[in-house]
Each structure stands twice: as structure tokens, then as C-alpha cells.
Amino acid sequence: MPRIHEKRVIDTKQIVSDIIKYALLTIGALILFFPFLWMLTTSLKTLSEAIATPPVWLPRAPQWVNYAVVWNMKPFMRYIMNTVICCICHVAGVVVFSVLGAYAFSMYSFRFKGFFFTLFMLTMMVPGELLIIQNYITIQKMHLMDTYIAVFLPTLASGFYIYMLREHFMQMPPSLFKSAKVDGTSNWRFLWRVMVPMNRNTIFTIAILSFIGQWNAFLWPELVTRTDATKLVSSGLIAFRSEASSNVQYMMAGSCIVLIPMIVFYAVFNKQIINGVGGGGIKG
């Protein structure tokens, strides 16, 4: 399109409203950022600095040794690895189940389709905490207690993600499917060669949201993991709290350690996360 020559008019109202807007946003950002900043500085303080009143803002000499101490108190590396493994399995499972579920509900017609879809949707109305007892008994009876599988199995099929993906699948022009059928394309090939690549943004959003969900999961992993071999960072941190007892600076250092992978994750997928939560989230 040709660029239209714009007359520049200084709009005072606009500038004032911009200033107010950015000021409020800055204050909000600072408030949100403050706990993280406090965590970071405290993790580098000595005990007396950490519990001093009035509070000491910055350590006189950064106590990097805190990190070494904490790293050796608990197998944090193990926790992080456990979490990463569970997250990857969880994401892979969620993506596969969502894709298959959404494909069936959008492209196939079968008996009781509406009924089954409603059932899937109803699962969204049940709070996860309500299911814990049932899931716990199931996992125990399957002798899966204290395994990775126990951590991610109950949340593999998600009504919400199936719904979200189905909506996107249903927006595809039906002629694509028909044209593929005329060419003898199998449902399986059409799904993976056409549907999935064409909806990769949505699927990526689902992967990211489910990754974050699994990483932040606390109550369920805490219940089904018992040993350091399977514990995730969230419950590992809780276990560490009792050992660190009142050493606030160690607590903060531990928290910083478990936060690092998530920060890296956010840094790498920043754009997709904003798209996913902002766009895909609302749309879904």
C-alpha cells in the first residue's frame, strides 16, 4: 500500500495519557518484580543480613558460597532432571492426545459424538483437587507410586486442549479434507501431513501451556513422589525447606536455582508464550 503522508500534530492529550499509562505499568512491573529481586539479593546475603531489621537491601559482600552449600544439601540437579523428563513426557502425551481427540471430534462423525464431546467438556468443570483421591487410589493400585508415570499420567488427556484444538481444526476449509479423500489420503496421513502442520501454532501453544502447567504442578507430584529419585523441583524445594530450617539465605538460593530453567524457557519461547497466553488462551 502506498504510504499516506501524515501531518504530524502534537497531541497533548495523547502524550499525557501515554505518560500515565507507562507510569502505572512501570509501578506494576516493579511491584511484581520486587519479590524476585528480594529473593536474588537475599540469596547472596549472610544470615544476619538476611534477618536484620531494618532490612539490609544489598549484601556487603555477595555470598556466592550460599549456592554451593545449597547445591550440596539436596540433589537439585536430580530434581530438575526429573521435572524436565516429566514435563517432556507430559507435553508429548498431551499433544498426541489432544491432536487425536480434536481430529476425531472435528472430522469424524460417529454415534454419540455429541454426548462424548460434552463429557470431555464436563471434565473442565471438575476442579483438579477433587480428582486427587481417585487418581491416588488408581495410581496406587497400578503400582505406579513413586514413578515418573504417576506424575504425568492423570493429566495426559485435557478437555480444554482438545476443545481448543478442535475449534481450530473446524475452521479448516472442508474442501481440503474432501480433496485429500478423493486422492485416497488416509485419515492418518491427512492428520499428520496437513492438519498438524497447518495448526502448528495452536499445537505449539498447547505444548507451552502444558509445559508450564506441569512445571508448576505441586500438589499431585508431591503426593505421588516419595524419593529424591522421582521428586520434582517443587516438592524438592519443600523437602529442602525443612533442612534449611531458618537459613533464609539458603532458602532463597534454592529458590533461585529452581527458577533458572524456567527463566531460560521464558527467554527462549518468550514470543510464543505471549501469543499462546494472550491470543490462543483467550481464543480457546
Partner: peptide, 15 residues
């Protein structure tokens, strides 16, 4: 079935 008829089909929207 459509795929057994050995036909080529072109849609209005090209698909």
C-alpha cells in the same frame, strides 16, 4: 468410494 474412482477434483477455492 471417491479414491477408488480414479478421478481428479478441483475445487472452487483450489484447496
Amino acid at each position: 468410494a471417491p479414491d477408488k474412482r480414479n478421478i481428479g477434483l478441483v475445487f472452487q477455492n483450489y484447496s
